[in-house]
């Protein structure tokens, strides 16, 4: 069994390396955003009310970047998010459908909200009042999009979970969401599971050390085996 020892670090490397699946366009680099706060920007909701993002502090926030003219992914994301929120009974969170199209207006937001019948004070369809601030917020979650003709965009399909201090805690990808994964992400945003987050910054280092260690150990073992064979001969 001793020959299995070098495989242990390798196993941990596989266990903790998260493969990103799904989505189009350029996926965000999570290692640079997780655990960092988003900036305080001035938002405008579908009724035209202006408020600061930080005024929502105190409750976790689910940020869903969309654009209102979207005909493919965004409506599906919104619908599956609606389904998830009602199925896990997430009453203690704010949900922000944030339009990243710099040309979207309040009337577009209102139409989007009515089209998807998003009710309640917790769900807001918002735009960022200032365009420079919009890109500050998008950079904070590392959301990148490409413009197509006719005000269409290529963008990754994702939602972002912020905790009650507006710190980025979790990304979820795709247009439909797994219930268990969703409720786990919510628990992370609520601060109920915080342990893995503390180690996240060191994960890469641990994995790399494990890899290098395994490599060195294997080399040493092979050379020793050769030597002992030679000595026996």
């Amino acid at each position: 069994m001793r020959f299995l020892a070098p495989l242990v670090p390798l196993f941990f490397l596989f266990l903790f390396s998260h493969a990103q699946t799904g989505g189009t366009g350029i996926p965000p680099n999570e290692s640079r955003t997780l655990g960092k706060p988003v900036p305080d920007v001035v938002l405008v909701d579908s009724e035209g009310n202006e408020f600061n993002l930080y005024s929502l502090k105190g409750k976790p926030v689910i940020l869903s970047p969309i654009y209102t003219r979207c005909t493919s992914a965004c409506p599906i994301i919104t619908e599956s998010l609606k389904k998830m929120v009602s199925s896990v009974k997430a009453e203690d969170v704010y949900i922000l459908s944030l339009t990243f199209d710099p040309q979207d207006r309040v009337s577009d937001l209102k139409a989007f909200k009515e089209k998807h019948s998003l009710k309640g004070d917790n769900w807001k369809v918002v735009l960022v009042r200032d365009k420079s601030q919009l890109f500050k917020l998008l950079d904070a979650i590392d959301f990148r999009f490409a413009t197509l003709p006719g005000r269409q965009f290529v963008h990754p399909n994702l939602i972002v979970f912020l905790d009650r201090d507006m710190v980025i805690r979790k990304y979820m990808y795709g247009v439909s969401f797994d219930r268990l994964e969703f409720s786990n992400a919510l628990r992370m945003a609520r601060g109920e599971i915080a342990l893995p987050e503390k180690f996240r910054g060191h994960l890469f280092l641990v994995g790399m050390l494990g890899f290098v260690g395994t490599l060195l150990y294997t080399i040493v073992r092979i050379t020793r085996l050769r030597y002992s064979k030679k000595a026996a001969a």
């Binding site: 640079r32 710099p102 197509l148």
Partner: peptide, 30 residues
């Protein structure tokens, strides 16, 4: 923090070059 270029294979390539301004210091160059 040096990023490698990202190759996007799942979109149809554009036919014409474009410079799009999103904000005063934010551009998209095709």
């Amino acid at each position: 923090r040096i990023d490698l270029p990202t190759c996007i294979t799942d979109v149809e390539p554009f036919k014409e070059g474009r410079l799009i301004q999103h904000a005063k210091d934010r551009y998209e160059l095709h």
